[in-house]
């Protein structure tokens, strides 16, 4: 058997640690530090399926208050987002420590919006009214490009931009929620946000990832057969 020169190169592989990650979003507390009317707490867990993809579950709590000259608004609620993250870095670059990619999420928000007071002024004078608290459900989709980097052993930081599209905000077309947990400003169908998170990583398995596939071996018999078929 004759082995071609290409086959003399060995197959390249890297050891890639799969991890479970648990983290918190720190942007919510930072915003709360500057705006005491907006408390958003959020955490996540993710589970690496392989070197390219991870399952993600995010959840959080919102306590939002807003007030301006003609209305007051409050909203308390919880949310969850479920989806996947795709890591676009090559395994030999990523090494289980770095990620740059995009996440896809479905979001569900359960919340209690209330408008304790609003005023409306027209020709006849000023009318005041209120919209009582009512439990509502919101559904949305999210695309989340972002990066992660391991700063210390098993400790990462990262950020992601969140591009969200509201499927349903509850309240019908007249009483759309002003702010939804996990989504943000609800008056718009499309919204953008971001998260900045810290995470603790637990390696649970190491896999061998092929970075350069083994070349196909060509035997003498196969080469002869190919030449014969060409001659005929």
């Amino acid at each position: 058997m004759l082995v071609s020169s290409a086959a003399l190169r060995a197959q390249d592989t890297v050891q890639f640690p799969l991890k479970i990650r648990a983290g918190i979003d720190v942007s919510g507390p930072v915003i709360y530090f500057t705006d005491k009317n907006n408390l958003s707490l959020e955490g996540f867990i993710s589970f690496d399926r392989n070197e390219k993809m991870a399952y993600v579950l995010e959840g959080g709590y919102l306590n939002y208050k807003y007030s301006q000259y003609n209305y007051d608004y409050t909203c308390k609620g919880i949310f969850m987002r479920a989806g996947v993250d795709f890591n676009l870095l090559k395994p030999d670059v990523s090494k289980g420590k770095y990620q740059a990619g995009v996440g896809l999420r479905y979001g569900l928000s359960i919340f209690n919006p209330e408008t304790p007071l609003f005023k409306h002024e027209n020709y006849w004078g000023t009318a005041s009214s209120a919209i009582p608290q009512k439990t509502s459900l919101g559904h949305f989709l999210e695309v989340a490009p972002g990066v992660k980097a391991e700063l210390f052993k098993n400790f990462s930081i990262g950020w992601s931009i969140r591009l969200r599209m509201l499927i349903s905000g509850g309240g019908g077309k007249d009483l759309r929620p002003i702010y939804l947990p996990g989504f943000g400003t609800g008056g718009k169908t499309v919204n953008a946000g971001f998260t900045y998170f810290l995470s603790w990583n637990i390696p649970f398995k190491t896999i061998r990832v092929i970075t350069k596939p083994e070349p196909v071996e060509e035997t003498e018999e196969e080469t002869d057969a190919l030449q014969n078929s060409t001659i005929r």
């Binding site: 807003y66 609003f118 007249d174 759309r176």
Partner: peptide, 15 residues
């Protein structure tokens, strides 16, 4: 009459 949200910036009106 029934309330209607115009936007976060404008608040509510009545339809």
């Amino acid at each position: 009459s029934y309330p209607h949200l115009i936007s976060k910036e404008c608040g509510y009106t009545f339809y």
